[in-house]
Design a protein around this nucleic acid. Sequence first.
DNA 1: CGGCTGGTTGAGGCATCTCAAACGCAGTGG
DNA 2: CCACTGCGTTTGAGATGCCTCAACCAGCCG
Lengths: 220, 220
Amino acid sequence: MLALLEAELPITRRVLRAGECLYQAGDRFECLHVVHAGFFKTVETAADGREQVVGLHFKGAWLGFDGIAEHHHGCDAVAMDTGEIWSIRYDALMARCIERPALLATLHDAMSREMARDRGAMLALCTLPADARVADFLRNWAEALEERGLRSDQITLRMTRAEIGNYLGMKLETVSRALSRLARDKVIGFSQGGRRDLQIPDVAALGAFVERSLAEATVH
Amino acid sequence: MLALLEAELPITRRVLRAGECLYQAGDRFECLHVVHAGFFKTVETAADGREQVVGLHFKGAWLGFDGIAEHHHGCDAVAMDTGEIWSIRYDALMARCIERPALLATLHDAMSREMARDRGAMLALCTLPADARVADFLRNWAEALEERGLRSDQITLRMTRAEIGNYLGMKLETVSRALSRLARDKVIGFSQGGRRDLQIPDVAALGAFVERSLAEATVH
DNA sequence: CGGCTGGTTGAGGCATCTCAAACGCAGTGG
DNA sequence: CCACTGCGTTTGAGATGCCTCAACCAGCCG
């Protein structure tokens, strides 16, 4: 649907390998990008060097909105594995949006969803204990896969524990311990061999785990 | 500037008193809103009842973007004191945007800035200790006032410690202690009488306090 | 005055961080 | 083929920052 509308715009396709930057903070903003394949993170960096993963982006996600206001990007967008990006000049897109209101609606839709996702992340960060936060993270990941028609019972984290921890506001050891506990409770399973492949037999069980964590906390 | 462009659109004005909702999660989305006077918070509520303040909005801020994608709002917008809201039907705004690209640019500008602000909040939440987070919060508040041409050396928090704590991901006692420490360090001052009025003799000192907190943490 | 709400402060507990050791796996070079 | 190295992960033990619980205070209002 996105792609169909974009069929009438000049699109630049680009393949990025793991670790490559699509754009960096300070880069001049000219294009919006759509993830066509692969998986990307956005990283905010403070003046003093603190780094924070602020977003994870799968196929279909738009990247680059942060640059519109200031005409420069405010964060880095980095490929987590080999991926393909479709880029559209923002000025060309705006011109086309004026002729095609449906295209504008699609764009606003994506922006609105990104804001909603950020709010959800803040909610999780502020109100969930570490274990539940990890469970919630996995649930969101599995649901994102389902929405794209992919299997959600067998997921591959393309991030290190340190990156997951950074995104979730905790240390890598805490992530590791949380995953171990989830596995002990049979809410997730480790695939033999890889500690990066997880089995999620039942996505709803992750949600139940979150609720259970909260219930236990209030009981005491 | 916003207001000028809006002079050519049908605008509904509405005054809200402290505590009144502009919209609530689940409400049908029809309008975008601009804060013309007063001060608003947006509150995300999870299915299980967890509440989280996810945004604070001063004069000039847009509200309601979260409803575009789903055609229903995903959070509550609540007045923190008496305020006036200008509302514009989204469909009418879109129609006008197509005739006036500058209006569209203004809109995207606001959306882009909101995303950048959310990212900044996540960075603070995840990388700053409680005291520094409070200092950072006050700095942002003071800067927001400065941007609007208001005095930033004397600010009035229209929120309780509990609300500040909720927004910053900490408990009210922690906020209170952080403010006490900031006052002890002469980074802020309490106006005689109200604990709600703060003096910020030097906004830059707040930033310095944040950096100092981080430096001390790494030394040890 | 008395109750209520919001704020401050102290004491103790707990969740998470810090520090440290050990493991598995992949790549490299002898 | 087997050290050897480096990176990511796991797990334990102890430290600590924030939370919990509780007491008290100040302002406000009926």
